[in-house]
């Protein structure tokens, strides 16, 4: 479904600030794979997400989705195959537009936009049905401006907007990191529910090791722009935070460099 072939990316090449963000990343996601990505700050997780979505282009390497080379496609063109939720709850929605207008925008992700009405009676009914699955009561607030919603509600809406059109690949970029624990838990549950419901091929970056272990069928750990550890199936099910930290230390010979990740265990 998603194939990354020898992706490299260097920032500020040839200057004193040169930083190699990704060193030859190879990764293949089979249809229905749910891969969680962990790694210390600066490991290249976000760069990887941005390269898959097309916001950044790789220096070398290719991105394939659904057997198609999309490396040359711009972000908006590639978005036909990709659903995405960002870390910042503000980033995934238009605050001055209503809930139904936001959903209408997301509804057109896979379709050509025309001069027909964005929110029809039929679509409104469907939006209402879909919103009901969130159990947040948003179905009764279709005409409310999204800016009035709480961070958790906005993030749940973003998640719905990214998934209800069944993307080939779903990218989740630390989408629960900015929420308080209770709301993060809610959005995590919704994520699980939606990924399972639509059998979405998913790549989820998280700082929370416990979450990374609990969700998905595969886990990869990144450091210094490389994938240094991968587990799937039974091996992943038996993982614990301690074992992950141990693995990191064994491979890298140093402590895992993110206090946030350790604390959230």
């Amino acid at each position: 479904m998603l194939e990354l072939k020898r992706i490299t990316k260097v920032f500020n090449e040839g200057t004193a600030d040169e930083k190699i963000a990704l060193r030859g990343i190879d990764l293949t996601l089979a249809p229905g794979d749910f891969v969680t990505v962990i790694g210390s700050n600066g490991a290249g997780k976000s760069t990887l997400m941005n390269i898959i979505s097309g916001r950044l282009s790789p220096d070398t390497g290719e991105v394939w989705i659904n057997g198609r080379d999309v490396t040359a496609l711009k972000e908006h063109a590639r978005a036909r195959y990709i659903g995405r939720v960002f870390q910042d709850p503000m980033a995934g929605t238009a605050p001055h537009m209503t809930i139904e207008e936001n959903l209408a925008l997301a509804y057109n992700r896979t379709k050509r936009r025309t001069l027909s009405l964005g929110v029809t009676k039929q679509k409104r009914e469907w939006f209402r049905e879909t919103l009901r699955t969130l159990h947040l009561g948003l179905e009764d607030r279709l005409a409310a401006k999204v800016g009035l919603l709480s961070g958790g509600e906005r993030q749940a809406l973003s998640l719905l907007m990214a998934t209800f059109t069944k993307p080939d690949v779903l990218l989740l970029d630390e989408h629960t990191a900015a929420l308080d624990p209770a709301r993060a838990e809610l959005v995590t549950e919704l994520t699980k529910q939606m990924v399972e419901q639509h059998r979405l091929t998913t790549l989820m970056v998280t700082h929370n090791m416990e979450q990374a272990i609990r969700l998905g069928n595969r886990l990869i750990m990144m450091d210094g722009g490389q994938i240094i550890f991968a587990a799937e199936g039974k091996e992943k099910e038996e993982l614990t935070v301690e074992r992950l930290l141990e693995a990191f230390q064994r491979i890298r010979g140093s402590q895992f460099a993110s206090d946030r990740a350790v604390l959230s265990s």
Binding site: S53, R55, E75, H76, A77, R78, A79, R80, I82, R84, M90, A91, G92, T93, A94, P95, H96, M97, L105, A106, N108, R109, T110, M161
Partner: peptide, 10 residues
């Protein structure tokens, strides 16, 4: 309203 978001919806 939110330009980066619009690109992510193609």
């Amino acid at each position: 309203d939110n330009k980066p978001m619009v690109a992510s919806f193609s």
